[in-house]
């Protein structure tokens, strides 16, 4: 469950996120919005690249932007200590708390094989090298359907395969929240279908909540039970996907020609 409370991000005079409050509790949540709506900024707040000017984000009840009260008797001392450090915690340490993300441009290293690319993530998600790690890597690759490409160099993978590999990288370890930033960019319809299938299965595969950003409304409809719409940093709508997409203000702000598309379909 993602709880966002009064999040504001300000860069000089620009406010990519403006007093955003929303609770997202469905296993697969979609986020749409026109360019510059603040979608990626929100993701960057989650992964710690952007520090919010004010407000709080909590994932599964744990705040990742604010310090918790120090003397909460319900928490173990270690958890308290970690939580107290959280605001100062480096982004790379957030991985150990189950936050995973992909990027708009895929980040597959060209000169490593697919296996090595995924392995590189596993190197840091586990305490030390173990058979379980090898197993986990293979399983993730198998899950996204790339086993036959196991030993291909990153440079020899197709766009679709690279996007899928990115998702595999995000499934290593015990993720609690998997954030996908436009995984469907540049994919054909058939490829999108496979992708949707993969995304839909993630909650069952590892129990993580999925947070999906995409411009491809079909993909959002196919995957997400809940969708939020951002416009200029403000929350425009949130709710069950179908209902949200039918709201007139959403159509107006973002899907100006959605009706046309629907008619065409």
């Amino acid at each position: 469950m993602i709880e966002i409370k009064n999040i504001t991000v300000q860069f000089g005079g620009v406010k990519p996120l403006d007093n955003l409050t929303v609770t997202l509790d469905q296993p697969i949540v979609g986020l749409i919005g026109p360019n510059g709506a603040g979608k990626t900024t929100l993701l960057n707040v989650f992964s710690g690249f952007v520090t919010p000017t004010s407000g709080e984000v909590a994932i599964n009840g744990k705040s990742i932007t604010q310090r918790e009260r120090r003397f909460d008797l319900n928490l173990t001392p270690m958890t308290q200590f970690r939580a107290s450090l959280f605001t100062r915690m480096k982004p790379h340490k957030r991985v150990s708390l189950g936050l995973r993300r992909t990027f708009q441009t895929d980040q597959i290293a060209d000169d490593l094989t697919l296996l090595e690319n995924v392995q590189a993530v596993a190197d840091h998600g586990f305490a030390k090298k173990s058979p379980a790690m090898q197993e986990d890597v293979k399983r993730a690759i198998d899950y996204v359907g790339l086993t036959r490409r196991l030993h291909r160099k990153g440079s020899d993978l197709s766009t679709e395969e690279r996007h899928l590999a990115e998702i595999a990288k995000a499934l290593i370890g015990k993720p609690s929240l998997v954030m996908l930033d436009e995984p469907g960019a540049g994919m054909s319809e058939a490829e999108s279908e496979h992708l949707a299938q993969v995304i839909r299965g993630i909650p069952d595969y590892c129990g993580a909540q999925v947070f999906l950003i995409d411009h491809d409304v079909d993909l959002i409809v196919a995957c997400c039970s809940q969708t939020m719409v951002l416009d200029f940093g403000k929350l425009l709508a949130v709710g069950p996907t179908r209902k949200v997409l039918e709201l007139p203000e959403v159509r107006k702000a973002y899907l100006g020609d959605f009706g046309e598309l629907e008619r065409a379909a």
Binding site: N44, F49, F103, Q104
Partner: peptide
């Protein structure tokens, strides 16, 4: 902390 070419974050 990050490289200057963080265009992929935009």
């Amino acid at each position: 902390t990050l490289s200057r070419d963080n265009s992929h974050l935009e």
